[in-house]
């Protein structure tokens, strides 16, 4: 891998994080009213926590000092104390991350696998019924609001068919420590509908990208050469076409992360799935400013980091990429 490429991408990721941090800081201070006053005024905050906040953020010092203090705190991982729970925000957030990962990771991976297969099939029988369905449904899927699809699925599978629970994450009373298998089973049962929503909505995008990539590759000379050797269709598709066709999917995956995160927030709200998204919504409704800010910041940093890694992976598997 090219060192200059790595350096450029790394600088970009750092700068993006910097933009997020500055934006976060500015939002507090551009609001009408004194931030110190707002923190003090909240009756839920006990005095010792207030002192801690003032000390941490330097709220009695000039704006410039506050900014430097803020940067220092961000790098130390001290993102403040939540008003509602009186605990360090980082701790509150760390508890929620696995829940969001659980309902986003599996559907996304499954959607990529499924998209590769469907896209390959549609491209091989270009103009056929599968191709037509894919393109029609693909357009439709990009217009369907994720939360609406989630609500419809709840309506059908939880209200009418009564197969899946209406909402929640796990059967009350179960804990991971006592009966791990039952706990995981219950979580999977509750996660089925949220995962289905995210899966259904992300398949067409990957499938369409795969289809277009495969179609352009099928016109290449090396495919003609392979065909003239008399190899089977299966070998042709899964060995010769696949390798080059999945490359665009990697960059698509990194760009789709932004959408997956938004989708997860909305779907979590529908199912009362208490992950990062619902945490942020509840914090925002309770005007728990440090928590909202920290969730936004961490979400943004995680997205940027994941994009950075995906870029590196792509540069690694595709030597043609030099400077993005």
């Amino acid at each position: 891998m090219n060192r200059a490429y790595f350096a450029r991408r790394f600088a970009m990721a750092l700068f993006a994080i910097g933009v997020a941090v500055v934006l976060n800081f500015l939002l507090i201070h551009l609001m009408p009213g004194d931030p110190a006053h707002r923190f003090y005024a909240d009756p839920r905050v006990p005095p010792e926590v207030k002192e801690e906040i003032v000390r941490l953020f330097g709220l009695d010092k000039p704006l410039w000092t506050q900014f430097l203090l803020y940067i220092r705190n961000v790098f130390r991982g001290e993102l403040g104390i939540s008003f509602t729970t009186q605990r360090p925000v980082l701790q509150v957030i760390a508890e929620r991350i696995p829940w969001t990962l659980a309902i986003t990771l599996f559907p996304t991976l499954a959607a990529i696998a499924c998209g590769i297969w469907v896209g390959m099939w549609a491209a091989w029988r270009r103009g056929g019924i599968a191709d037509f369905l894919l393109r029609t449904l693909g357009t439709a899927a990009s217009s369907i609001p994720s939360f609406w699809l989630a609500m419809l699925l709840v309506m059908v599978f939880a209200y009418w068919a009564r197969i899946f629970p209406l909402m929640g994450m796990v059967k009350p009373g179960l804990s991971l420590g006592e009966r791990p298998l039952a706990f995981i089973g219950s979580v999977a049962y509750h996660a089925a509908l949220p995962m289905l929503t995210l899966f259904v909505l992300s398949v067409p995008g990957y499938a369409l990208a795969m289809r277009n990539a495969v179609i352009s590759i099928l016109g290449e000379n090396y495919i003609l050469a392979a065909q003239s050797k008399g190899i089977s269709q299966r070998t042709l598709l899964w060995r010769h076409v696949l390798k080059n066709a999945v490359l665009p999917l990697i960059s698509m995956f990194s760009l789709s992360l932004v959408g997956v995160i938004g989708g997860a927030v909305l779907v979590e709200q529908v199912f009362s799935w208490y992950g990062m998204g619902l945490l942020m919504i509840r914090a925002a409704q309770a005007r728990d400013f440090p928590l909202v800010q920290a969730v936004a910041l961490i979400t943004i940093v995680l997205t940027i980091a994941a994009n950075f890694v995906a870029d590196l992976v792509q540069a690694w598997v595709d030597p043609r990429i030099r400077y993005g």
Partner: peptide, 23 residues
């Protein structure tokens, strides 16, 4: 183009919630 690359990876919905909380 540097700005483009930066902006492309910022997630919209969390930012919107953040701004909406304050404004």
């Amino acid at each position: 183009m540097f700005l483009v690359d930066v902006v492309m990876v910022l997630p919209g919905l969390p930012l919107m919630i953040l701004v909406a909380t304050y404004i």
